[in-house]
Amino acid sequence: MHEYKIFLKEKKQIDELMEQGCQIVSVKENLNGAFVQFRPIDEEALDQVNTLRLLTPDSRKYFTNQLRLKRQVKN
């Protein structure tokens, strides 16, 4: 089992969305994983919502750390 590979895939998805200027707007965690909603900061593209379903615990840590980082930058 190489769970790390799944994490890398999920991390890449998160990074790509972040690089595209998306921010995390909601997180729903349930029995099936973490469902993280990304939306562009850009006002014109507000209707383009991307939801990632994250399976690995490392990804669940990762997006939280990214979220905090963004907050710190903002403040």
Partner: peptide, 15 residues
Amino acid sequence: EPMTWNERQALLNTL
């Protein structure tokens, strides 16, 4: 940087 479960949940609650 360190982040506890309690801190994580608090962070997510701000969304």
